[in-house]
Design a protein around this nucleic acid. Structure first.
Length: 866
RNA sequence: GGGCCCGUGGUCUAGCUGGUUAUGACAUCGCCUUUACACGGCGGGGAUCCUGCGUUCGAAUCGCAGCGGGCCCA
């Protein structure tokens, strides 16, 4: 079987993509021999584009999933799709040239489902290209009845526990989307606005929102503010509209802002809501759900907010009530989808009761990687001021299974066994307590987070199996949305099961473009994973994901990283090709060797290999993929390719059968272990190499190698390193002297005892001899240095002076002294005695006129006889 | 305004439980067709380890302050 010289990723990757049987990645629900490892894969929003940020996240997941399988876990790496939401509604309206109210609800929903299915298909394809070991038998789609029945049942269960309730309460409202939104959906942006100074009856106030004068319900001052003390408790008249409001005092009024007098409206901002509830103020709604002024705005009724603002300012000016304006910066809350400034309206909505303490204590029981990301959740949790508003005024979402009796007004929440259902399509199967069967359906639907915050429950078999697998072992997620998914999911999991959703959270960073900015459409620095695969293949892309940065840190996308990754594949392939041609007729099972029987160089490389296995395993266990892969790559390139192979070539090409078999045994062992460790990172090339070695099962069903501490021998390693260094040094010598690298030298004399010099002779193509004693040359000590590891702790404060004293010494004299015993020097008038271990003496060897060259390798003299 | 993270050759980065010679990749320059690989090998140049103060015999590493960047939030 000949192995092509060039590694062509496209051919190999597409071959395996179609050859692989995906069922090898299925989670086995019916076995209990292996420990479970369930991954709560984040369900992406099906935009149709599986972007590079997803890809980074999924590479991490796949590294873990493949690694854990090889370590003997029963792994579930499911894939879900978080379908519901506004962007799809908008897209459907765009594609079909309609608005959602022009077609029946069911029809509109069907159009959304269709588009979503197409998008899922596209994204699945990219995931397959990238070689993810997804368990497609556990795929879930939140818009399917089989999934949203769980969302609905969770609603009913939480309602029964009083964790969900309906109430009129201020909510964040997007007038463009005509829906309530949660705090998590509010984005803040700095904008400029005018601060308007108004005559307000006897007082002067400053406000950025004069259009809300009609909604003014009080005026507030700081109790410490002497200027206005007399007004507290008095009533004053609101200009233009004439309603009488009370002057109240509150510590939160900043006397230095504006005039120190603030008008309170229902509602200009969050602070208004706080004051409104603390001081039990009345409610005046001046803005309706569509963003128009209401009847209480009098002649301004029906205007938009900005029209009203302009009109009122004009009127105030003409009545000389506006006496000053100041340009100022202001942070405006906006809808994260459409960037329309949000309003705070009081509406009847459904809420989930939040329990910050429970969320915080649960977060403590979860391992966060990196640890500091937990703080973000804690900070966010601490700022929650009111409950989570879960009702939305949209169509493409999970329906709220509720009706209202038209006769008596009673709310009927569906029974779990009726679900799934859409109340706008089905009537309840029973009559109301009052006997009526005339119901009005709840048209509001659920926030999509109600779907996606139960994914760990869903993948664990909650409501479909007697036992759930909770907690799941891992949730991988980007750090941009910690506040939402972590908060909501912990909340739901605790409310519904009292079990934490995950053991571990693995956070990934954002992907930055080559310009250093977060990759985004608006920045125009987008690279798609498909583009990278088309050029260099999935294995190269995956290496970028592994070594681009530590999990949690942002990772810059760089073409050159992918290019060097593809070079590594070629290098590995070349090592493999070389090895395999020397292993053609080698039977591993018949030629097993005991470690100690092997030549020194083989023992050395195997000792190093065991160390790499142990440290790579440790890095994988800590999710440090960059460390793990760099160790592998470094070992393969530096140790195996540049040194080990060069050292054993002569044995592989030589006549000595036993020497040759030892090298073959060692090479085979190295390959077998390295290929399996590469498998989680570069699944395609690993499979190709593994299968060509004659294994019938997939490398992805093999076991992760075990490193044995007992096979690590520091003495052997030291001797092996010396051999490696001597050969490298001779290679360098030849290179610098212009001698062909395979040209023989007359003789190489090594002034040290090395038990096994056959590979030195082989690699240098020269006669090698270990010489007894010291060479017949003059040593010239050139420098005397302090060994700080010894001197520092021993002499403390004196160490500094000892160093400067040592620098003054003549290295020759010092060396003379130290060769007879300890070095005694005078420091600060005291005699200090230094042991040989405390010093390092650098020497040069003079060739003294002999017709030879002399090399120095770690203090050992090598004589080259030309 | 608050919180978290980060600042290391031209670029990106390792080290950061303190030990004097700071890792690697990419880029750059020079040499080499050598029984796997020129998508390779060997060698070279290139760093005020953001700044300042402090702790210490000794600081890239620990502390404080400042400057700069990123992210999350208000």
């Amino acid at each position: 079987m000949s192995i092509p010289k060039e590694y062509i990723p496209h051919e190999i990757e597409s071959k395996w993509k179609s050859a692989w049987n995906e069922s090898i990645y299925y989670f086995d629900w019916n076995e209990n021999k292996r420990p479970q490892y369930v991954i709560d894969t984040p369900p992406p929003y099906p935009t149709g584009n599986f972007h590079i940020g997803n890809s980074l996240n999924w590479c991490y997941i796949d590294f873990v999933a493949r690694y854990k399988r090889m370590r003997g876990y029963n792994v579930m790496f499911p894939q879900g799709w978080d379908c519901h939401g506004l962007p799809t509604e908008v897209k459907v309206e765009e594609i079909n040239g309609i608005t959602k109210n022009q077609v029946p609800r069911a029809e509109f929903r069907r159009l959304c489902e269709e588009l979503t299915s197409e998008n899922i298909k596209k994204m699945r394809e990219t995931m397959l290209e990238l070689g993810f070991s997804t368990d497609w038998s556990n795929e879930f789609v939140t818009m399917d009845p089989s999934y949203y029945v769980k969302t609905q049942r969770s609603f009913v269960k939480m309602h029964e526990k009083d964790h969900i309730y309906q109430e009129e309460h201020p909510v964040n409202w997007c007038p463009r989307c005509e829906t309530a939104i949660a705090f998590a959906e509010v984005e803040y942006e700095s904008r400029y606005t005018n601060l308007n100074y108004l005559h307000f009856d006897k007082l002067k106030i400053a406000t950025t929102r004069p259009e809300l004068l009609a909604a003014c319900v009080a005026v507030a001052i700081n109790p410490e503010d002497k200027r206005y003390n007399d007004y507290i408790g008095k009533a004053i008249k609101v200009p233009v509209f004439g309603q009488e409001v009370k002057v109240i005092s509150d510590d939160n009024v900043d006397p230095s802002f504006g005039t120190g007098v603030v008008m309170i409206c229902t509602f200009g901002d969050k602070q208004d809501v706080r004051w409104w509830s603390e001081h039990n103020l009345p409610l005046r709604k001046a803005i309706d759900k569509n963003g128009y002024m209401t009847a209480i705005a009098g002649k301004y009724e029906g205007m938009t907010i900005s029209e009203c603002k302009a009109a009122i300012i004009g009127d105030l000016e003409s009545k000389s009530l506006l006496y000053d304006q100041e340009h100022m910066e202001q942070n405006v809350g906006m809808c994260w989808r459409c960037k329309t400034p949000i309003e705070i309206l009081s509406e009847k909505q459904w809420f989930v009761r939040i329990n910050p303490d429970e969320i915080l204590s649960t977060a403590e029981q979860i391992e966060w990687i990196p640890e500091h990301m937990k703080v973000r959740l804690q900070n966010w949790t601490g700022t929650m001021e009111w409950d989570w508003c879960i009702s939305r005024q949209r169509i493409f979402a999970t329906p709220i299974p509720v009706w209202y009796c038209r006769k008596c007004g009673q709310t009927m929440v569906a029974k779990e066994e009726w679900l799934p259902l859409d109340p706008t399509q089905n009537n309840p199967p029973v009559n109301c307590e009052c006997g009526s069967n005339d119901f009005e359906a709840e048209e509001d639907v659920l926030d999509t987070w109600m779907d996606s915050s139960i994914t760990p429950l869903h993948v664990s078999g909650w409501l479909t199996r007697d036992d759930t697998l909770l907690p799941t072992q891992l949730r991988p997620q980007g750090h941009d949305i910690i506040r939402t998914w972590a908060f909501y999911t912990i909340l739901r999991s605790m409310s519904l099961t009292k079990i934490k959703p995950w053991d571990t959270i693995l956070i990934n960073g954002m992907v930055l473009g080559e310009d250093g900015h977060k990759m985004s459409k608006s920045a125009g620095n987008i690279i798609s994973p498909d583009e990278v695969i088309a050029n260099y293949g999935a294995d190269s892309f995956r290496q970028w994901a592994a070594v681009g940065g530590t999990p949690g840190s942002d990772v810059m996308y760089r073409w050159k990283d992918v290019i060097s990754a593809s070079r590594f594949l070629q290098k590995m392939w070349s090592i493999y090709r070389f090895s395999m041609t020397h292993l053609e007729n080698f039977d591993f099972d018949k030629n097993k060797r005991n470690l100690k029987e092997l030549p020194l160089v083989d023992q050395w490389v195997l000792s190093r290999l065991n160390k790499v296995v142990i440290s790579t395993t440790k890095s994988m266990d800590q999710y440090q993929f960059d460390e793990a892969f760099k160790q592998l790559r470094g070992f393969i390139w530096d140790v195996v390719a540049d040194n080990y192979i060069e050292l054993v070539k002569s044995r592989l090409y030589g006549e000595d059968i036993d020497d040759k078999l030892s090298a073959q045994y060692t090479l085979y062992t190295i390959l077998n272990i390295l290929i399996r460790m590469l498998a989680p990172f570069v699944p395609f090339i690993s499979e190709e190499m593994y299968s060509r070695m004659g294994f019938e099962t997939s490398v992805h069903l093999s076991e992760w190698p075990v490193g044995y501490k007992g096979d690590i021998d520091d003495d052997i390693e030291q001797q092996g390193e010396l051999i490696k260094d001597i050969v490298a040094s001779v290679r360098r010598y030849k290179s610098e002297a212009g001698i062909a690298l395979n040209a023989p030298l007359k003789k190489i004399e090594i002034y040290a005892t090395i038990p096994d010099i056959r590979d030195i002779a082989g690699a240098t193509n020269s006669k090698v001899e270990c010489m007894p004693g010291t060479p017949d040359f003059d040593y010239v000590p050139v420098e005397i240095k302090a060994n700080m590891g010894v001197i520092g702790p021993k002499f403390r404060k004196k160490a500094g002076n000892i160093i400067s004293k040592l620098n003054e010494l003549d290295p020759k004299v010092a060396h003379e002294q130290i060769s007879h015993g300890n070095l005694v020097i005078e420091v600060d008038g005291e005699e200090v005695e230094l042991e040989p271990e405390a010093l390092v003496i650098e020497k040069e060897v003079m060739s003294g006129g002999r017709e030879v060259d002399v090399l120095d390798v770690k203090g050992i003299v090598i004589v080259i006889v030309k």
